[in-house]
Design a protein around this nucleic acid. Structure first.
Lengths: 344, 344
DNA sequence: ATGCACGATAAAAACGTTTAACTTTCTTGT
DNA sequence: ACAAGAAAGTTAAACGTTTTTATCGTGCAT
């Protein structure tokens, strides 16, 4: 017993396969009564569309490529863990569509560039979702040049307008700096992502501007750029806390680096709240379990991820990218008062 | 300028498309010289196999479905983060094959059952990788009944033999219990995954056996089953530490629950090493950044994940499942001496 | 020489769908 | 009453492969 095709339905109803095909996709060329007959037969025989036929005929793949940059297998650091939730969010957003998420794990930026070129030139997917955008991102240029639908998690700075979703890093840094300054802090450290990443730049600029507004000097020794691992947070606390003029507050770009910062505190015998405080951006709501729980700017990762899914669908439908740009402001969750300790 | 097909090569070489097809797949029916001509023409015109044609003709999808159970979007807990690494490991293992990882995110067990039935009956993939196996897993029965290639991350107990990869939970619990007992602990808590999961059962049995060997009584109040979130670890420490006869050691099934256990320590004013100790299973090498770092049984998730990829490939080639079963013993990483504090 | 097997290639069909082009029937306005 | 046009359906081709079957020389034994 073979799987039924439109041919089966055609025989069953006495119609031609063309009519069946049209009926199933609600073409106005077929009468409602005829369509009803076709639908009835289809459900009766348990018909399911065979995508391979469609794909060959139309050239569409019904795949959305998710490019996931994760460090190589030997690299045992807690990094990129939020990808799991990101991917599931995207997958759920595509649930009611015929599209599937196809995973492309790459080790670094160069590999992601190569993979994207391949997907675009060989049409291995109908849309692409990338993250880790740079100020001037060559992958974006590749996709734009080929007029290929894509959405980025993260903004770019020098590229032509495109669809994106991102946290509102500028506002977040502005708000968090103002809050810390208001609480008496004068030496605030910024643990930032890799400097080539677009949001690293955005955050740094916002940081500098906030210092200016507060009338505080900019000290490069209080800014670090790197892969946002616990090791990164730890090492920077270890070095910065040894400065003659050590920071009294650390702003960490994610929860992994914040965890590492805590590890640095422990190593140096620093006590959170007494010697310095840590604030962080949090995607996974894990900072509430730190000891002590810290103040975070929390953006549940399900929000950007479902937007990414929705946007790539709309982009593939042909919607212009300008309509598909969103900055999400994370929620401030105050778990400490974070005031500067006057007798530290 | 269209993308070249085998027809292009046929015209280019004067051969028939049949011969070109055979030459490209190294059929013995075609002479080496002819094959050379074909290969040359193929590279010259930049030919790439069009999978849609292959898929329609052969019925193969060249997709490996990875079923990822993640809590729904509203559920903001740190859970399942190791999936990111798991997926990238699988993806890399398939890198040199024509197969791609297709992601199926599901919210719960029932959904995963439904999704698998669909994949199997509609042949939406050539192989499936699942995790979170149960003692008697209906999904495994579904796939076995349809003779569908699959590999599980986690063993089963009552199912017929199948391909799997898992940590050696039995040995791990035996070793860690012996080590804690040797260090003077008499009240050891077990923070276990959901009781219906196969490895939850394995761990519990091993735990009971270890108690028996050590001549210690089994106390159900020291065993908890649940979703391995930080909240779970925290809550159980909060309740267990209030027992008249509180545990002096906690064995946590993953790093998320261990983090939560620390949060519980902090809340109760317990000090690690003085009042009790925490040991954990760690996939992501994150426990080293806890304050203090704790002793873990560390299995870099890249190992099982690349095995999963390798096994599903071999399974799809027809290799019998019995040859594709591996238990991996995690490495003990001692970061504390974990001795029972006599004057606690 | 004749027939036969064999090796190498060609021809053709098939996988399941969409869609351009065509046919038939029915409406409608004059 | 009749041409024009719309409505509804059919025919046939096409997408790019693989694979079964057919064809055609060529070398070999008889």
């Amino acid at each position: 017993m073979q799987r039924p095709t439109i041919k089966t339905i055609a025989q069953e109803t006495g119609l031609s396969i063309a009519t069946v095909s049209k009926a199933l996709k609600h073409s106005p060329q077929v009468r409602p009564e005829t369509r009803a007959i076709v639908i009835e037969a289809a459900t009766r025989v348990g018909y399911e569309l065979n995508m391979h036929g469609v794909q060959l005929r139309t050239g569409k793949t019904y795949q959305v490529a998710a490019i996931m940059t994760a460090p190589g297998p030997k690299q045992n650091e807690w990094e990129g863990v939020e990808y799991a939730q990101l991917l599931s969010g995207i997958s759920w957003a595509l649930e009611d569509s015929p599209y599937r998420v196809s995973l492309y794990a790459v080790r670094n930026f160069e590999e992601s560039q190569a993979v994207i070129k391949q997907i675009v030139s060989l049409k291995k997917a109908d849309g692409i979702i990338i993250s880790g955008t740079r100020a001037d991102d060559p992958r974006i240029r590749t996709m734009q040049a080929a007029d290929f639908p894509f959405v980025t998690y993260g903004t770019s700075i020098h590229n032509a307008p495109h669809a994106y979703v991102d946290a509102d890093n500028e506002q977040m840094i502005r708000v968090s700096m103002a809050r810390l300054v208001e609480r008496g802090h004068r030496r605030i450290a910024l643990l930032n992502p890799l400097s080539e990443l677009s949001y690293g730049i955005t955050r740094l600029e916002a940081y500098k501007r906030a210092l200016e507004v507060a009338g505080l000097p900019y000290d490069p020794a209080l800014v670090a750029h790197g892969r946002l691992t616990p090791a990164f947070g730890r090492e920077n606390v270890l070095t910065m806390s040894e400065l003659s003029n050590a920071p009294t507050a650390y702003i960490c770009a994610n929860e992994a680096s914040a965890l590492g910062a805590f590890s640095g505190f422990h190593e140096r015998g620093l006590v959170h709240g007494r010697d310095a405080v840590i604030n962080a951006t949090d995607d996974l709501n894990v900072s509430q379990y730190f000891a002590p729980p810290i103040t975070t700017y929390y953006l549940p990762i399900s929000e950007p991820s479902s937007l990414l899914g929705a946007y790539i669908l709309r982009r593939m439908e042909g919607e212009p990218p300008e309509a598909l740009q969103t900055l999400l402001m994370p929620n401030l969750i105050e778990r400490c008062d974070d005031r500067l300790n006057p007798n530290r």
